[in-house]
Amino acid sequence: MAALLKYEFRKTKVLNLVILIIAAIGEGAFLLGSVLWADSVLLTGSIVLTCAAAAGFLLVPFQSADLLYRELNTKQSYMLFLTPRSPKSILGAKILTAIIWLAVQGVVFGIFSCVDAGILYRASGATEGLLSALLSSVGGAGFSVSDLVLFAAKIIGMTYGFILSVLMAYFFAEIVQSTVLNGRKGGVWFSLLIFVILFIAFISITGRVTAVVPEAYQFAVAACMDAACVVLFFFLASSLMEKKLSV
């Protein structure tokens, strides 16, 4: 697994490092703007940071899906499938790489946003009353900072769970496509079609299940559904690779 991860990181590092470098530049601009009281620099930094964060969360799964597609449909697949590694390890390394890159980006952007929020809070000379008002606008009366942290963690967890379940479903769609079409034309569209069908089915099932559970448990149920989706498609995809896939 370590060797597979080493090369998965090698294959995906350029895009991720570019995003992180752009984010660092944006953060630098934001800090400079806050020190110099230059609104335009501060605003530019905020926009760059927001764009980098959005690009990071969208491009990491997109890059993973694109990479697997190319590796299943070109001769570069031999680099993976000639090695004495199981399909589970190969697929596991790919999904783990995406998880780690998403986590790295999450940590970096999380630190940046905490620092920036702290600076803005201090710079604005806000009072505790204003903070309470801001918190109330997010979560209603009595909403505290710890509630906000918990709320943010839930949102981040749901986003990560959703991204991973979507990515795993897309991996499965690509492997079905490669098994059926075996490198013939139209593979991207066929993968997309399978994915859309799976996605609609998944959303529909999740919606129906969460609708019948009490609101307090909906987050936990949705998280379990995402995890089940990841596990189900992981085993289906690796089993298909092992038994049917020719490259």
Partner: peptide, 30 residues
């Protein structure tokens, strides 16, 4: 795969590799 060494007829190495990287890759896996 641990015992059978296959040389395909087509090129299959990653484009970013240098010749020496191919050796490192094989060392890492075999």
């Amino acid at each position: 795969r641990k015992k059978i060494s296959y040389m395909p007829t087509e090129s299959y190495f990653y484009n970013w590799m240098r010749v020496a990287d191919v050796g490192t890759y094989y060392r890492d896996f075999f």
